[in-house]
Nucleic acid binder design. Structure first.
Length: 411
DNA sequence: TGTCCACTGGAAGGGAGGGCTT
DNA sequence: AAGCCCTCCCTTCCAGTGGACA
C-alpha cells in the first residue's frame, strides 16, 4: 500500500474528541440541567392534552442559548413516551426562521398532520384559504389535541403581521372534535408589545421565561457534555470555567459556550496538541466571530454586496461622515461599471438598513440641520473582512475596467 | 421663530416566478 | 392554455422630522 496525503491528517484526527456529536448545538441531551423549573412549568400547562383537553397557549421567552428549543424538543419526546400512539395528542414543531411566510408555516404544519401521501398540500400554488380549510379538516378528523410549537415566532411577525396567528388561534372556535394549542417561542422580550390586542391575549395566555444561565450553571452544562464528548484528561482544568465565564459575560448563552468548547478542541486537534488549553479557547473565540461574519457576507445577495462595497469605497475616499446619498452615488457608479441593474434610492436605503441589522455596518439616523436628516453610516467590520469583500469575484470586472477607461480617455 | 434640507419610514401596488386548477 | 394564488423584490408616493441657519 502506498502512502497517502491523508495519512498524516488521519493519524492526528479524533485523538481528543471521543464523540463529536455531543458537542453539536443541535444535540439534545437526556437531561437539561438547570431548566427543571421551566420544564415542570410547561409540562404542567400542557398535561391536560393527554386527556384530550385543550391546554392554554404558551409564550416562551428567553434569549438565544437559554435552552428554549432544547427544552421544547425534549418535552415533545417525553410527550410521545406518555402517549406513544398519539391517541390523545400530537406534538408539532415548526421553526419560523426557516419558513417565515404564512403559506410556508401552514404547509409545514400540514406536512406533520396529513400522513396520506395523496392528500398532501403542495408547497405552493394553493390559496391560503384552501390550505387553511384542508388543515382544519384533517385536524378535526383526528379527534385529539395538537400542540403546535412555533419557534422563532417573531420572524413571521416582522414580515407578515399577525394574521397567521389570528388564523391559528381562532381555529378552536371552528374545530368540533379536535383542539389546538400554540406554543410560541421568541427571544424578543418585547414580542407581545408588537402584537395587535386581539392576538396578544390569546397567544400569551401563559408565559414561561427562560433566564440566561449564570457562569456556574454554564460550567455544569459544559462538564456534563465534556464527560462524554472528550477522551479523559484532555481538558486543562481552567478551560471549562473560562468558556463559561466568557459566554456568561456575553449573554449566558449555552450554545455559544458549547461552541467555544468544540472549536477549541478542533483547533487543538489540528495543531496536534494533546491538551486543550485556555489559549485554544482564545483562538476559538476569534475564529468563531470571524467565521460568523464571513458566512453572513458570503451569503449576501449581489445587490447588498454592491451596497456594502459602496460604503467601503466611501470610507476609503472620504474623511468626513458617510451618508445615504454618498453611498447611493458611488453605488450607481459601481453598478454601471459592473453592468448590472441599478436600484432606486429607497431600495438602496433599505438595503443599508438590512446591513445595519446584520451588524455589518452602523447606520444611525442623524440630523445635519440645514443639510437634512439622513443616516450616518460606519463600517463595523475589520480590515481583513473588508479585504474579503473587495476580493469577491463579483467585483472582478472593477479591476479590469480601469485600463479600458484609461485608453478611452487618451483617445 | 420659522424655514428647509435630505432624507426616513410606512404603505400600497406592480410584476416576475413559482405552481396548482380547470 | 388560461386563470388563480402566494411570495419576493422592487418602485412609487407621501407625510413626517431634527436641528442649523437666517
Amino acid at each position: 500500500m502506498g502512502e497517502s496525503i491523508f495519512d498524516r491528517s488521519i493519524n492526528r484526527r479524533n485523538t481528543l474528541i471521543k464523540n463529536r456529536n455531543i458537542l453539536q448545538t443541535t444535540y439534545i441531551p437526556d437531561q437539561l440541567p438547570h431548566r427543571e423549573k421551566e420544564i415542570n412549568n410547561i409540562v404542567e400547562i400542557i398535561t391536560p392534552s393527554l386527556n384530550k383537553d385543550k391546554p392554554s397557549n404558551i409564550l416562551v421567552i428567553g434569549k438565544t442559548g437559554t435552552g428554549k428549543t432544547a427544552v421544547l424538543n425534549y418535552i415533545g419526546k417525553e410527550l410521545l413516551k406518555a402517549d406513544p400512539e398519539k391517541k390523545n395528542c400530537s406534538f408539532i414543531y415548526v421553526n419560523c426562521e426557516i419558513v417565515d411566510n404564512p403559506y410556508g408555516i401552514l404547509y409545514n404544519i400540514s406536512n406533520q398532520i396529513i400522513t396520506d401521501h395523496n392528500s398532501k398540500i403542495p408547497f405552493t400554488g394553493w390559496s391560503l384559504d384552501r390550505v387553511y380549510e384542508t388543515i382544519l379538516f384533517y385536524i378535526d378528523k383526528e379527534n385529539k389535541v395538537f400542540i403546535i410549537v412555533l419557534d422563532e415566532i417573531d420572524r413571521i411577525l416582522q414580515k407578515n403581521g399577525d394574521d397567521i396567528f389570528y388564523f391559528l388561534t381562532t381555529m378552536n372556535e371552528i374545530l368540533k372534535e379536535s383542539k389546538i394549542s400554540i406554543i410560541g417561542v421568541t427571544n424578543n422580550t418585547k414580542f407581545t408589545e408588537l402584537l395587535t390586542p386581539r392576538i396578544k391575549s390569546r397567544l400569551g395566555e401563559e408565559k414561561v421565561v427562560f433566564p440566561p444561565y449564570n457562569p456556574e450553571q454554564l460550567q455544569d452544562i459544559l462538564r456534563k457534555r465534556a464527560e462524554f464528548a472528550f477522551e479523559p484528561g484532555v481538558l486543562a482544568d481552567d478551560v471549562i470555567p473560562y468558556c463559561a465565564a466568557i459566554s456568561a459575560q456575553i449573554s449566558g448563552d449555552a450554545r455559544r459556550a458549547l461552541d467555544f468548547l468544540k472549536v477549541s478542541a478542533e483547533i487543538a486537534e489540528r495543531n496536534g496538541d494533546s491538551i486543550i488549553t485556555e489559549a485554544h479557547v482564545n483562538s476559538a473565540r476569534s475564529k468563531i466571530e470571524l467565521d460568523a461574519v464571513v458566512e453572513v457576507i458570503k451569503t449576501l445577495p449581489a445587490q447588498s454586496k454592491i451596497v456594502l462595497m459602496s460604503i467601503i469605497k466611501n470610507h476609503e475616499s472620504k474623511s468626513t461622515v458617510v451618508i445615504t446619498g454618498d453611498v447611493y452615488s458611488v453605488y450607481k457608479e459601481i453598478c454601471s461599471a459592473l453592468n448590472c441593474v441599478v436600484l432606486k434610492e429607497k431600495r438602496v436605503a433599505d438595503l443599508i438598513s438590512e446591513l445595519d441589522m446584520l451588524g455589518i455596518v452602523h447606520a444611525r439616523v442623524k440630523s445635519f440641520g440645514r443639510n437634512g436628516r439622513t443616516r450616518e453610516i460606519e463600517l463595523n467590520i475589520n480590515k481583513d473582512i473588508i479585504d474579503f469583500v473587495v476580493k469577491d469575484e463579483l467585483f472582478e470586472p472593477l479591476l479590469k475596467h480601469k485600463p479600458i477607461k484609461q485608453t478611452t480617455l487618451s483617445m
